[in-house]
């Protein structure tokens, strides 16, 4: 399949497969992440947890094609991010932790731009924007320049933009950062509805409560390696103190 094929959306394959991922930032540097392997099935919410500097963001950057991988393979809906980056990227969208958004556009222009990027048909756009606005409640602010938005509003418009094409895999780096409790609730509700439609969500977070509440699975990263890959429901049954144990253990 051509890498630039605009219709390269694959609903049948596994949303995310990472095998033996290694990444170092320069030839002489140590590995930032090493031997990372996991798969993420459909209809799941999966969390990536770990202390600061553990390698969470590096993994997310590798799998979204922001940075090249040193060794290993990442496949998104069957497309290799290394060999078929454009086709792979049609199947996911990424919300960064630093509101990487075009601040000189209005919210609406940004959404239209993202729709153009992902080839969303004109007939679907208005309805989609309405739907997302209902979920994220930007209201009339969507007509304002993004540069005038607050931290939380920027986060909302980033999420809305990333959802314009209803990606198979929705990836987020610290999605709850800066959101007020009400918006967090709305985002969580949206996430649950989203996976109910067979889509997949992968996000990194320090908010253990959110991870425990909504994730089906979580991989715990420390010092660039996977420490554990857990099913949240099973884990919570066996560990009443919750995910906090990984952070306490790290501090000790």
């Amino acid at each position: 399949m051509s890498d630039n094929n605009i219709t390269a959306v694959n609903n049948d394959k596994i949303p995310l497969e990472i095998s033996r991922l290694y990444k170092k930032y320069s030839p002489k540097a140590n590995y930032a992440v090493e031997d990372i392997s996991f798969r993420c099935g459909k209809g799941l919410i999966m969390g990536i947890l770990g202390p600061n500097g553990a390698g969470k963001s590096t993994i997310l950057k590798c799998l979204t094609g922001m940075i090249p991988i040193s060794e290993g393979e990442i496949k998104i809906c069957g497309f290799s991010i290394k060999d078929q980056p454009v086709a792979a990227k049609r199947n996911f969208s990424f919300v960064t932790d630093n509101h990487a958004v075009f601040v000189k556009m209005t919210g609406l222009q940004y959404l239209a731009f993202m729709a153009d990027v992902y080839g969303v048909p004109t007939v679907e756009r208005a309805e989609r924007i309405k739907e997302l606005d209902k979920a994220f409640q930007l209201g009339d602010s969507v007509k304002n320049l993004i540069s005038s938005y607050s931290h939380g509003m920027k986060q909302k418009i980033c999420m809305m933009g990333s959802l314009m094409h209803s990606p198979q895999l929705w990836i987020m780096d610290e999605p709850m950062l800066g959101l007020d409790p009400r918006t967090q609730g709305a985002v969580i509700a949206f996430m649950k509805r989203y996976v109910a439609d067979g889509k997949t969500i992968l996000f990194s977070s320090h908010n253990l409560d959110v991870v425990q509440r909504i994730c089906d699975r979580a991989v715990i990263i420390n010092k660039g390696r996977i420490v554990e890959d857990i099913i949240i429901a099973d884990f919570m049954r066996d560990n009443p103190q919750g995910l906090q144990k990984y952070y306490v253990a790290d501090e000790e």
């Binding site: 209005t106 729709a115 153009d116 969303v120 004109t122 756009r125 208005a126 009339d140 320049l145 005038s148």
Partner: peptide, 18 residues
Amino acid sequence: KFLYTSVPDIRKKHIMIA
């Protein structure tokens, strides 16, 4: 805030134009 009163064009555009 710079509220744009005109409705932005959300019709599909070629990616290069966008």
